[in-house]
Amino acid sequence: MGGCMEFLSGYRRARLRLFEWRSCLEWEYKLLLALGFAALTGLAAQVVIFLPWTPVPITAQTFAVLVGAVVLGRHWGGVGQLIYVALGAIGVPWFYGMSGGYEHLLGASGGYLLGFVVAAWLVGYLSDTHPSTRRAPSLLGLFLLATVVIYGLGLLQLYAWLCAHSTPPTLLELLIKGVLPFLPGDILKAVLASGCAWAIVPKERFC
């Protein structure tokens, strides 16, 4: 029992030192970390399932967005996703299907990409500045809130895209194309991401 408690105490000290180190890095090293999580998001984008009734595919990106936001923290969580979106828009082939180009931002799923940036900034800022958000239930609630933000921006552009390419959809049709197919998987990703984040982030204030 004593050995287990000693291990847990050492683990808590180690993760606190890790996040203190991350917070004290010079901006260029934080930029490299952000680039790394942008690449991780691009890798997660290749886990893709296409559905016949919607132009928006299912991917694993949300998991990388949420965990990356906690690891990168205040401001830099959003920067990581901004790098992902910006480099993808100019041609880096790390959007789904190993593709890139600005047409993704103008397409049916472009709003979700912008939602990644806003959601990552929100999660990174709150998890860094409010230690209470690092508890398991709070992390899950924060991640579900971030998912709602992604859906909100995604649906706005999806609606505009559908209006430009067909008749305006009803609210139910929009939800069938832009939310309902993704909801079970996104809830699962939020649960898994909150578990990972709870394990790695210190509960004490570190910045």
Score class of each variant (00 low, 15 high):
residue 10 G to I: 08
residue 11 Y to K: 12
residue 11 Y to L: 13
residue 12 R to T: 08
residue 12 R to N: 08
residue 13 R to G: 14
residue 14 A to I: 14
residue 14 A to Y: 15
residue 15 R to S: 01
residue 15 R to F: 03
residue 17 R to M: 11
residue 17 R to K: 15
residue 19 F to Y: 03
residue 19 F to M: 05
residue 19 F to A: 00
residue 19 F to S: 01
residue 19 F to L: 01
residue 19 F to D: 00
residue 20 E to D: 13
residue 22 R to C: 11
residue 23 S to E: 06
residue 23 S to R: 07
residue 23 S to H: 08
residue 24 C to G: 15
residue 24 C to V: 09
residue 25 L to P: 08
residue 25 L to Y: 08
residue 26 E to P: 07
residue 26 E to K: 12
residue 26 E to Q: 10
residue 27 W to K: 13
residue 28 E to F: 15
residue 28 E to P: 14
residue 28 E to A: 14
residue 29 Y to S: 13
residue 29 Y to E: 12
residue 30 K to Q: 14
residue 31 L to E: 09
residue 32 L to T: 00
residue 32 L to K: 01
residue 32 L to E: 02
residue 33 L to I: 05
residue 34 A to E: 08
residue 34 A to S: 12
residue 35 L to F: 03
residue 36 G to A: 07
residue 36 G to Q: 05
residue 36 G to E: 04
residue 37 F to C: 08
residue 37 F to P: 09
residue 39 A to F: 00
residue 40 L to K: 05
residue 41 T to N: 04
residue 41 T to P: 05
residue 42 G to A: 05
residue 42 G to C: 03
residue 42 G to Y: 00
residue 42 G to P: 02
residue 45 A to T: 04
residue 46 Q to F: 07
residue 46 Q to G: 09
residue 47 V to L: 14
residue 47 V to Q: 02
residue 48 V to K: 07
residue 48 V to P: 01
residue 49 I to E: 03
